[in-house]
Write a protein that binds this DNA or RNA. Structure first.
Lengths: 98, 98
DNA sequence: TAGATAATTAGATAGTTGTCTAAACATTAA
DNA sequence: TTAATGTTTAGACAACTATCTAATTATCTA
């Protein structure tokens, strides 16, 4: 799947957006995150996997725990993508991507 | 569905993002849009319905045609939403929305 | 009023997604 | 090495999504 698509799809789920909001403050382990949700750990793991594949978060094992961190450059990317959709097309240029 | 969700979900599909890019230039009818896709008219109609329900586009009948226009304020909204996810939380404040 | 054109709605279907339970894997500590 | 803890993987399933064909609605024009 192309990058643009995986990013928008990663953002399309409210659980995943909440994960990002949690990670704004500090890196967290799934065990810490799960307290904020009423889903099972495997479900959380699944969402983290999607965020990871979209390059929105990164993970690193730290002993028994796995620490997830927010890839903050993703927001620059997102703003760029939004602007790309929003920007008026160049006169005479055919810049609609299919 | 909440507004935030419907907006992100509207953007999560590449066909719908292309529709928005087409509408940047000028209002269009489904009959004009369909030339840019290899899907059927009912499928396009379905995507337009989703964009409409997310308040991303508006439509108005014009004789035999229905003209779709881009609701440009949606981009301000989107940037605001992205910033909302991106912004560092207020110190001491619990602003994670579930 | 017919017939033609533009678009949507209805209904069906294959593929995808989010969720679960159960099992497996990785690390730490007794 | 065995037990406990933290996390992921595997497999199943209900709900949702994008798509299609066929039928319907709305408008225009001869």
């Amino acid at each position: 799947m192309n990058k643009q698509n995986s990013l928008f799809e990663a953002l399309a789920d409210p659980t995943r957006r909440t994960i990002l909001k949690l990670l704004r403050s500090a890196p967290l382990t799934p065990g810490e995150m799960i307290k904020h949700f009423s889903i099972t750990k495997p479900s959380l793991s699944h969402h983290l996997d999607i965020l990871k594949k979209a390059d929105v978060v990164a993970s690193e094992r730290c002993g028994q725990n796995i620490v997830y961190t927010l890839n903050t450059t993703v927001f620059d990317e997102l703003v760029a993508l939004v602007m790309d959709i929003a920007k008026p097309p160049v006169q005479g240029g055919s810049d609609v991507s299919h």
